[in-house]
Design a protein around this nucleic acid. Structure first.
Lengths: 216, 216
DNA sequence: TCCTATTGTGAATCTGCGTTCACAACGGAG
DNA sequence: CTCCGTTGTGAACGCAGATTCACAATAGGA
């Protein structure tokens, strides 16, 4: 083994990064301490100098995914155009991520389903709802800008956004890449986008009355 | 242990049923041969008289879930009303199932993500796309009936349907029941339903020309 | 009733994996 | 240069769970 000695701050980073990459490349099944250690260039036992155990490593991975998701939304939101354009970019980014990282996000959610630990489920739940909260905020901005109809709750928009992204991702990951999520995903996206825009056009005719079809 | 001796046909059924129930109640983590055998009233070793191994049991469970899904769609499709009403019932059934069976379906999908076996992934993929195919067929019927707009590919409808159902299910399962999928799910559904109905009304004005907003 | 294939049992085995431990090597502070 | 806390190592331990095996009990036909 490499006899290099590094500070624990650096090692923690390396280990989390290696674990993240392993999950992305080979799935959670392959995530054992031995594999992570090998990837970093350490003996398995060395890992315990920097993390109390495997669970803690997984927590660190989850934390990274969380940061990544938050970062992506922030990046997309700060780009040009209205909120709807930002959502579209988010959609593209999401599908691209699935292609290169083997549905890392669904994989972590999957783990939460199986892990007996209620604590881990709570954490994953927090990450997902945090993400949805940010998407909802983007939707709210879109409503203020007039790009998105106002008779839909921002949370509903976020939920549906997730619904547009998730199934294509899932199918792509399940098929091992044989199923290309771009095409069917895009069709669903177009319909979604069209739906989000639709109402304001009609709303101009009857500006005030809360129409019976309103969704809240 | 119960000294009862039964034919292998019956035992296979019992074992698959017990495994299915275990997954639904406690998740995949708890699905070990010992637990399954205990539930059937057998010693763990007896299980191997009827299945070659644990993998085969899981396959049988997947098969049952497949049958159940197909059955649900068939049941819903044979009910009263148009295809849109049937889809609505399917939506309700799905959410109800999540409540009582701890997101059995996502759990199996989750397993496929983690299982190294490409064979299992293929099987789960087949089940999911089979299900989607049937939903698409329902959507096609809806288009023939005039209940669903015709400028959307049936497969896109099926994909979006899955997208409407999946996120609420996931959040509910993750939160351990604290998150009630009914309310936000229903809001998304209403928007979805409204979207599916919308176009034909506008199409009457310009019956022929493939409008630019058409989604295929 | 007896016989035999089938089904059931408990103990033993095997394996993968997380974790611990006693000891060695490193590297910066003094 | 020396010392000591930090980091790294290989071997060993413990455990959980799948699988095997030699043997016992059962059921149904001859």
């Amino acid at each position: 083994m490499a006899r290099l000695k590094l500070g624990t701050r650096i090692r923690r980073d390396q280990i989390a990064e290696a674990a993240l990459a392993l999950v992305a490349e080979r799935g959670l099944r392959e995530l054992n301490v031995a594999a992570v250690a090998r990837r970093v260039g350490l003996a398995p036992s060395a890992l315990y100098r920097h993390y109390p155990g495997k669970e803690a490593v997984l927590d660190a991975v989850l934390e990274r995914v969380h940061e990544r998701l938050v970062g992506i939304v922030a990046h997309v939101a700060s780009g040009p155009g209205d909120a709807l354009a930002a959502l579209r970019r988010l959609f593209d980014l999401h599908l691209a991520l699935v292609g290169e990282s083997r549905a890392l996000f669904p994989v972590l959610v999957s783990d939460a389903f199986q892990s007996g630990s209620a604590e881990r489920r709570r954490r994953v739940f927090a990450v997902v709802s945090g993400y949805m909260g940010r998407v909802a905020a983007l939707a709210r901005r879109g409503q203020r800008e007039g790009a998105i109809r106002r008779d839909v709750a921002p949370r509903t928009v976020a939920l549906m956004f997730l619904g547009i992204v998730q199934p294509p991702s899932m199918l792509s990951a399940l098929s091992g890449g044989a199923f290309d999520p771009r095409r069917p995903g895009l069709a669903a996206w177009r319909l979604f986008e069209q739906t989000l825009r639709a109402a304001p056009l009609r709303a101009r005719r009857a500006p005030r009355s809360p129409r019976p079809g309103a969704v809240r």
